[in-house]
Each structure stands twice: as structure tokens, then as C-alpha cells.
Design a protein around this nucleic acid. Structure first.
Length: 279
DNA sequence: CTGGGCTCCTGTCAGC
DNA sequence: TGCTGACAGGAGCCCA
């Protein structure tokens, strides 16, 4: 479900309400992707710090007084979403897909994740495992000014896989999942099956700009809601209505009118215009 | 090392 | 109506 825009929308929704919140309890439902790796009781009394994002991961630092005691690394997987409940009203009973509650004096942070590909993992710090090991493999953030077209192009030059697969792998730039990878490739006029190392510097420049434009636009629209993504207040995203190709097999390409095609690449449905997007 | 395929899990929807 | 298969926003892991 959630790609970078959805995760960032989520972060912005919870960061304010949770800043300085004191942990009262932690409740776990069914197992998620990995075990928490810590005794939930040991989190009681800790204070939530400044929530940050890296790729599609969220980091909730937890402080004991003036010292960072560790934190929780969260991933929403394919079907996860976070909601803030209360604190005025008593938090509703967790439903069958509510697998994590962080109960604080400012309300309850609740993770709903039907498919349970998401994760909540304790880590002593961002620099220690398991967080460090998980974040280590991530490429640069899309809006990092140090990610220049030259650097982006150099990463692509080292990869022989199709550009669509390389975007999904996230080592040239993080944040684009299946929707935004399709959309960015369309906007850049690049065929998804083109080998990454065959992309020229000018085209890499255009692709990086397209990734940034696509992610930025989606963020401004509150993300995409295909079936069930909502922000922490339950509001849907609006980007999906602007998608040029994603989910639009058979419909006319907005640029040339040819039918949008769908093809499975890297185990994912890939939507593209066969005449606008060149190899 | 790389690329490609598999896998985790549940829900929904189209088609028969 | 009920069953079956395809498919869904991710990404770590394993193998060739």
C-alpha cells in the first residue's frame, strides 16, 4: 500500500500529537513480519521524541529523561495504516487487524494491517541493529540535494536489470513503489523494460525529475487511496485520480491516446504506454 | 556480486 | 449463491 508519500503523510499526522507523549502501555495483536524484539513492559514510562522517516520506514525515538533509550522502527508493508485515537475518548476495542497499539497520555497510536507484512521492531538506536541493518540497504532520499543527476545516472549505469525493477529495489533512489514507479517512467517517457545501464545522462536526469515530481505531487494530494489507505484522521488520498497509467489498462494514454498496456515485471503489474515510453 | 523468483498473509473481485 | 483463481500499495531472503 504505502509508498513514500503515504508514509510521509502518516508521519506528519502522528509526529505532532505524539511529540512528548508518555508511553502507558504497548499492546500487540497477531505477529507482524518480525517480532518486536523487546519486552513491551520496558517501554512503559518512556517519552516519544521527534518521529522521522527514512525511505518507507518510520522511526519513533523513545527517551528516558534526557537520554534516548532506543526506539521503534515501523514499516507499513502492503496494507498497513496508522491511526491516532483519543485521548479524549477511550480507544475502541482493537479489531481483528489491529496488531499494535502504543497507548500514551496523548492518545493511542494504532497499526491496522490486514496482511501483516508490516513491522514494528525495537532497536537500541538508528545506528544499531536491527534498524541499522534494515536501513543500510536503502538508497538516497528522493529530495536529498546531494542526489544529483550524475550520481543517479552512475547508479543506473551499474545495473543491468530493467529500470522498473531498479526503481522498485530502491538503491538508486528510495520511495517509489509500484504506483509511482509506473507514473514516473511514464512522465519521463522511458519504457519500464529498458535496462537501467542503457539510460543516458539526459534521460536519467529526466527520470529523477519525474520521480521527484510524482512523489511531490502525491504528497501534496495526501497520497493515493486505492482501496484502504487513509491518513491518521481517516482521510483518503487523492492522487490515484491523477494517475496517468497506473491501474488504467486499456484506457487511452493521456498524451497520445494509445491504449495503456499492462505487463507483469518483477512480479508486479506494470502499466505503461507502448508508444510514448521508449526503450 | 547480481538478477530473478518466492514468500509472508488476508481480503476482494471477476468469472464460471 | 458458492467456489476458484488472480491480484493487491513491499521487500527480505534464497538460489543460480
Amino acid at each position: 500500500m504505502p509508498e513514500l508519500p503515504e508514509v510521509e503523510v502518516t508521519r506528519r499526522g502522528i509526529a505532532g500529537p505524539l511529540a512528548g507523549a508518555k508511553v502507558h502501555a504497548l499492546r500487540l495483536g497477531k505477529p507482524l513480519r518480525w517480532p518486536l524484539g523487546h519486552d513491551p513492559a520496558r517501554l512503559v514510562g518512556l517519552t516519544v521524541g521527534d518521529i522521522t522517516r527514512r525511505g518507507k520506514y518510520l522511526w519513533l525515538p523513545l527517551w528516558r529523561g534526557a537520554a534516548e533509550a532506543g526506539g521503534l522502527l515501523l514499516h507499513l508493508g502492503m496494507s498497513g495504516s496508522l491511526a491516532m485515537l483519543g485521548p479524549g475518548t477511550a480507544a475502541a476495542e482493537p479489531g481483528p487487524h489491529d496488531h499494535f497499539d502504543l497507548v500514551t497520555d496523548r492518545g493511542t497510536l494504532r497499526l491496522n494491517d490486514p496482511r501483516r507484512f508490516g513491522a514494528v521492531v525495537w532497536s537500541p538506536s538508528l545506528g544499531d541493529d536491527p534498524a541499522a541493518a534494515l536501513l543500510q540497504r536503502l538508497g538516497p532520499e528522493p529530495f536529498d540535494p546531494e542526489l544529483t543527476p550524475q550520481r543517479f545516472h552512475a547508479t543506473l549505469k551499474a545495473r543491468r536489470a530493467p529500470i522498473k525493477a531498479v526503481l522498485l529495489a530502491g538503491d538508486a533512489v528510495v520511495g517509489a513503489g509500484n504506483i509511482y514507479a509506473c507514473e514516473a517512467l511514464f512522465q519521463a517517457g522511458i519504457h519500464p523494460a529498458l535496462r537501467a545501464d542503457r539510460i543516458s545522462l539526459p534521460r536519467a536526469d529526466r527520470l529523477l525529475a519525474a520521480v521527484r515530481q510524482t512523489l511531490g505531487r502525491a504528497l501534496a494530494l495526501g497520497g493515493s487511496t486505492l482501496r484502504d489507505f487513509t491518513d491518521v484522521h481517516g482521510a483518503s488520498g487523492a492522487y490515484q485520480a491523477e494517475a496517468a497509467v497506473y491501474g488504467r489498462e486499456g484506457q487511452p494514454c493521456p498524451r497520445c491516446g494509445a491504449a495503456v498496456r499492462r505487463r507483469v515485471m518483477a512480479q508486479r503489474s506494470t502499466y505503461f504506454c507502448g508508444s510514448c515510453q521508449r526503450r
